[in-house]
Design a protein around this nucleic acid. Structure first.
Lengths: 292, 292
DNA sequence: GCAAAAATGCAAGATAACTTTCACACGGTC
DNA sequence: GACCGTGTGAAAGTTATCTTGCATTTTTGC
């Protein structure tokens, strides 16, 4: 895999011919416009011919201008950062059968960045505040995302009381829909969406219960049925779409709720850990403690 | 009039037909990827035909998909779209009360890198091959990691038969420990480790059942009790440690098993989706299918 | 439950984007 | 000043992208 586009262009600034330097310079200074250009439009702006643009791109290691744009898309750049050495190591030493892996990794990193962008949005603050203050919190997940819902609910239960993982065991969702209206609902769902997810979201909304939907980018019914939609990237260049980063998102929410609730949570955490210790035990507990 | 494209798309979310809503939604969710798309690539991702994308763009006031991109150029404005720029944006514009967030992000990215390093290790291949071939797969998770175990198990069940999420409901783990010895076990656990996790791992190991432990970096009893230990970073500069990246790791394993099993999984996937469709239904299924 | 209308996909045709070929211009060298 | 190599643009050729017409499916209204 060739080095990041930006550094290739910078390199060309020094080594290239006159026209090449001009192209590289123009691209670097208007990098965020580049994806909208075609070889022809770029050529005209720089004052060279279309063919030269193509040759230039081929010269610095891409098969075409289109190919360069393609790389730009998931380019993490060449800025020094925490793990760059290891990242580059993985990128560069990948055997052919592994290159899909390292490409997947870059996409997964982009997903993490996306999630942290969400964490600074106003709607995020809404959700966190609501999850901290609302009397009853309900969590639902369907199909493979049920585990994520449970993960979220279990952690939330460490922080506050009255958090329930809902299910269809009773054949309806009365536990959410026909109860204390001081409630809110979080749903985890991804393609192919369960009929239940949409139905539950709708019913809850019309019952006046705020709904937060954590889903993938393909969900087209989210906005009509939920108050907030967090669309998490799920395609990481693998055979199997991965909703794993929803777990990261939910942990960030948990953390937000934690801070919203303040120091009082600590006491609850200890109490619950104590309960777990007495009923089940932790590794390293003195044997005596277990036998009580 | 800020961001006409965005508002046009938002408007289409409400007024458009099914396919149109899907297109608008996808474009909005991945707005900064749109410049790289062509009508065809977009159509494939959204699951509509190329022609529909063109018609949609014309429908909301542009002459073509290309024309829409042309307008997007102005609207996207100075919003950074390159992942590296977005990263820097998050890093640099963080208000004081957010700086712990962006530091956490870097750690979380490092965790992703760590996981992909694992995915290239020999022991990883062992685990993947074993999970594909062993007759019975058992999965366990304790405390908050139980959800992750369920997540893993549910996905695995889509790929192969005889995957069981074990629990202590019966008061022992006979389902794993006193049964067909052609079995393997995956355990998810993090601090403070449940006594059960260690005990189960030991018992399984001495019963000749290979054990894979997915845990945090603090686990000091893993190597004596498990055959493979994947230690996932969990400290992201937050109040609350996050085991979320275990989900990413488990999805990578799933993906590996998927490839190991080969094309035959596809049939199983379809069969299971079909079952889900008939018993519960998916969003978008014709009403008739649900009433059968 | 049916028919009319709208929406959609397919495939062929049209257009735009890109590559290749070839000839010429410029700069340096003998 | 002729020679040679490199870089370049124009035009022709190739491929990708988009549009259009038509058949089919889905939705809507009664």
């Amino acid at each position: 895999m060739p080095a990041p586009v930006r550094s290739q262009l910078t390199h060309a600034l020094e080594t290239g011919s006159k026209a090449e330097r001009a192209i590289a310079n123009y691209m670097l200074s208007t990098l965020d416009q580049v994806p909208f250009e075609t070889a022809a439009s770029l050529a005209e702006k720089v004052g060279v011919s279309e063919a030269t643009v193509g040759r230039f791109c081929r010269g610095i290691g891409y098969t075409s201008f289109k190919d360069l744009k393609e790389h730009l898309k998931d380019d993490l750049g060449d800025h020094p950062w925490l793990v760059s050495d290891r990242l580059n190591e993985l990128r560069n030493t990948a055997r052919d059968d592994e290159s899909h892996l390292s490409q997947g990794m870059e996409l997964e990193i982009a997903a993490v960045v996306r999630i942290y962008e969400y964490a600074r949005s106003p709607e995020w603050q809404n959700v966190v505040a609501r999850l901290a203050r609302t009397q009853n919190v309900y969590v639902a997940g369907f199909q493979t995302e049920r585990g994520l819902a449970q993960y979220f609910a279990n952690q939330m239960q460490y922080l506050r009381d009255k958090v329930t993982l809902v299910d269809l065991a009773g054949g309806n969702f009365a536990e959410v829909l026909a109860t204390d209206p001081d409630a809110c609902l979080v749903i985890f769902e991804a393609r192919r969406y369960s009929r239940l997810a949409k139905l539950l979201a709708r019913e809850a909304k019309s019952a006046g219960i705020p709904v937060t939907l954590i889903t993938d980018v393909f969900c087209d019914w989210g906005h009509e049925a939920a108050d907030e939609v967090f669309a998490v990237p799920t395609q990481f260049n693998q055979f199997w779409d991965s909703t794993a980063q929803m777990a990261s998102l939910s942990n960030l929410i948990i953390n937000g709720v934690c801070m919203e609730l303040g120091p009082q949570v600590e006491e609850r955490l200890n109490r619950i850990a104590g309960l777990y210790g007495r009923f089940t035990g932790h590794v390293g507990d003195p044997v005596a403690a277990i036998e009580k």
